[in-house]
Simulated scan of single mutants.
Amino acid sequence: MASAPQAAPLPLFYNALEPLSSNAHAAFRLRTMEAAPFLATQHAIPVTVDEFIHAQRSMPIVFTDGDDSIPIALMGLNEGVNVFVDNGGKLIDEGIYVPAYVRRYPFMLARLTPDAQELSLCFDPTADAIGTFDDGQALFTGDQPTEVVQSILQFNEMFEQAGMRTANFMKELRELDLLMAGEVSIQPEGAEQPFIYRGFQMVSEEKLNDLRGDQLRKIQKSGMLPLLHAHLFSLQLMPNLFEKQVRQGKMPTPQLAI
């Protein structure tokens, strides 16, 4: 989340942030994005806990390294590799789950000043999907936002709420000390060395099974347990990603990390 458009470090994919307003953008329209070129070389996308159940059917969910770890969905096992889109960023399989982080682009909620209490709807002015086009959906009628903008705002508000739930989930995960350093070794047939992937965290099944009864009841009641299982089940897709990379000619070098 950017605390000040144009000043704070920008989130992944965003080149700039500008507040959306009826004064400055009265004639702006929004085109449907048929492809996301910025996604073609991105292998890891942030996801919220609200997405675990859907995302785990398509791609592995792991956690970044460090004390401020966040959940990410892997769309490839190596830097610069995304097996779900072509070189132009168009989905190869329309049935694949696309993380909400990607779907909200080029919009997001941000604080206009560091001390601002409210978040404002902003957009990336460098995006090809928004501008003064002859086609596309109007963003304003006079000085009033259209249903398109209202829908975008609602989606981004839901995303922010999911982000807060994710932060609480991660806090509890750390308090329970369930995370451990992740490592996946894949030995393709005929390869002299295995391909070893590190640089991420995962839930320790041993620690999860050793939770006290009161701790287990707590995460069952909170709805956390199914999310942990979704994460663990999703790890079975690691070899699938590897196979997709091989089929697409994106064979990595042994011993590379995520």
Rank of each mutant, 00 (worst) to 15 (best):
S69H: 00
T48Q: 07
G88A: 11
V49T: 15
L112R: 15
I72E: 02
P99K: 00
I45H: 03
V62S: 03
G95C: 11
F52K: 06
R103V: 05
G142L: 07
V62F: 05
D134W: 02
G66R: 03
P125A: 09
I61V: 05
P46Y: 01
T126P: 06
D124R: 02
G95A: 15
P71Q: 02
A110P: 12
P125W: 05
E94Q: 14
T126K: 08
R104N: 04
V62W: 03
F123M: 08
E51S: 07
P46R: 08
V81M: 10
I53G: 10
S58Q: 05
P60T: 03
Q42F: 01
Q117P: 00
P106K: 10
V98P: 07
F38R: 13
D135H: 08
L91I: 12
P99F: 02
R111M: 14
D65F: 08
N82Q: 09
L121I: 12
L39S: 00
E79V: 12
S120T: 15
E34T: 03
L109E: 04
G89S: 00
D93A: 14
Q56G: 06
I70K: 01
A35Q: 14
L119A: 13
L74T: 08
Q144W: 09
E94L: 11
L121N: 04
G66W: 08
G80H: 01
F84S: 09
I53Y: 13
